[in-house]
Design a protein around this nucleic acid. Structure first.
Lengths: 215, 215, 215, 215
DNA sequence: CATGAATGAGCATTCATTCAT
DNA sequence: CATGAATGAATGCTCATTCAT
């Protein structure tokens, strides 16, 4: 039993408890290895109640993904909401991203590590979330290019690739920061900004790294 | 049944077949969702034979990770083996990486997506492989700094973070290239080089992006 | 299916049914040869329910041993509880033993024949029960010696051997009585008393059978 | 692998090796828990060879029972073969029994502990062996009665019961002696003789222990 | 004679899911 | 609203047994 069973609470709160438990168990064990028994136990409710509220393991997992996705996106958006120059917005968004993932390791594990293991449907859901972040980042890059150069010289395809790289680097650094406790969100964000900003700037001004002629 | 059953073949060959099948099934479904029945079927053998040769699901998965890790590292090393300047080596290594992951999507999925879901032991194995690649990349970065500036001004901690970011970006782009068939290995490599090279160069010369004062 | 399935009964009763079935199947086939399927079928429940209540085959077997041991010891103790002279108590205990084993052939088979085959842990459990009975019998023998001769001339080691022999003879006669239905518990008890009593009496008075000189 | 594989030995010897291994493995683990793999390994031969020579697990186990039964009976008969008075013969036979079982613990375990767990057929085989010993002992008892009293006053049924008790006591003491290494075969035999002889003598002279009137 | 290669069938165990109360 | 009772369907793994060489 996860905790003392407090009877008769409003449905919304019960559901939140269940989702909390589910996110934790899914995040620790993965979709398949997590059992509905464990989740119900940790939530302090009986299994049929979980089914009554959330219908099935699939829907429960889906609900976890939805909630954690929304929370992550909201955190990043809110972080970047202060406005300012594009680099400032990117910096703020990254810090919010690293802070949020460090504070919600189970939710982040669900999104980053385990969503892929539960079948096509979940992959799609997480991809949608990821696309939303990528789109957000893409917007920032384009805006930065416009600010700096008036005219975005970058083809959309290239911007998409850059955003993918940036997001992947961020994900990797999030894992790094979660593994090594001495790495702060701020440090991870700084590392990534340093890594990315000059490269982005170069590209926006049309300077490219050229592959060696023979390659 | 996966294919026509060719009976009575030498053990080494059968084992390879089994590993091929296992990599595919694990890559498609993940560790837990993959069933030994499916793997045996796809390999065209009975389950007991799989156990006779590979002992258990855990060992089988481990063997997959080992084989695919070794193959990926070998591909990257071989790609970069031509020597030349550090940027050239990085470029060659990245191309080899994207080419290999594109050609071995199941193996890549096992390493990148699913190894985390099978328990601590597997995580450790994949992390070891990842560390090997990160160390390789780190070496290239340090060497590049030395070539360009005589003295590596970067602290080890910062280099580690950069390597993490670079590898994460590469992983993300590999997923991008695998999802969107129109993205070639070369294009992914070029995107990443362009993204990363100037940032790295700036850092090596001590130029950093500075967070805005109020942050 | 063993019997008509009466649905929805309280846990305690279901557990008793399961133990009844398990004792029977274990007693008939032995630990290894007994299958959880057979036990569940005979109990009229599904296998998962057996696992929900009894956890594992090992624990189920252990529970059988515990229950049957306790029942047998209780029967013997209650039989001998009437008091009286030591020979009277022994006689009463033996009759109770033969009656109980005849009425519970499966339980007796579990204890006598099959507990040895399920691994060290079970051996220990049955040995503990056997030691309890041996100790009980030993006590009667010592008491009888005291009653008859004031001073027990028998060393403890010899008493232990006698008790072992007596219990072994009883076990053998229990098998005999179970095999040949015409042998009653009373007859088996009388045979054993006749066999044992005079020998015990002789020993208590210090008269021993002497091995021939050349041996 | 149990030992170095010496190739090409005559069939009889190979079969003996296999039986040795089988007796040991069956004796240690019981019929069901013993695996043909273990037996073949311990015998230092391949599994198909075991099947070629001994046909099946059942037949192999049966062969073990036959061989060990014959050896035990032969040992007892040979021990008692010296002749002399009936008590001397019984004493010699018992010593031979305890000596043999102490020297062949695996064989004894097969006969005493595990033969019951392999199904009806094996029980019958062991029972036949046991009946042979019981008959032998019965003969000694009857002979002793004749020697001492000229006329056997004991009904056959009573003699059978006594023999059962005596053999059971011997079996129990064999287990005792095998468990506690400080108990010698001679001591076990003396304990049993002392236990039994006076009781048998009394019975032969018509003196019986009488159950208390009210029982 | 002897074995490496191979399998059909079974077993203990677990899990998502559903009723009856 | 909430739960104790119950199960169909897998799943990892093992074993006795048999060919093809």
């Amino acid at each position: 039993m996860g905790e003392v069973r407090a009877k008769r609470m409003p449905r919304a709160e019960r559901e939140r408890q269940m989702l909390d438990a589910a996110v934790r168990v899914f995040g620790e064990r993965g979709y398949r290895a997590a059992s509905m028994d464990d989740i119900a136990d940790l939530a302090g409710v009986s299994k049929p109640l979980v089914y009554l509220y959330l219908n099935s393991k699939e829907e429960l997992f889906s609900a976890c993904i939805q909630r954690e996705s929304a929370a992550l996106i909201a955190a990043v958006r809110e972080g970047a909401m202060g406005g300012g120059a594009a680099d400032r917005q990117l910096w703020d968004g990254l810090r919010a991203f690293f802070t949020h993932t460090a504070r919600n390791p189970y939710g982040w594990a669900v999104l980053h590590s385990h969503a892929r293991t539960g079948g096509e449907a979940f992959v799609a859901e997480v991809m949608a979330m990821r696309e939303e972040i990528v789109a957000f980042v893409t917007g920032l890059i384009v805006e930065a290019a416009r600010e700096a150069h008036g005219d975005p010289a970058l083809p959309g395809r290239e911007v998409a690739g850059l955003a993918q790289a940036l997001v992947g680097a961020a994900e990797s650094l999030a894992g790094w920061a979660n593994t090594d406790a001495s790495v702060t969100a701020k440090e991870a964000a700084a590392t990534l900004m340093n890594f990315a900003w000059a490269g982005l700037g170069n590209l926006m001004e049309g300077r490219r790294w050229s592959p060696p002629p023979g390659a």
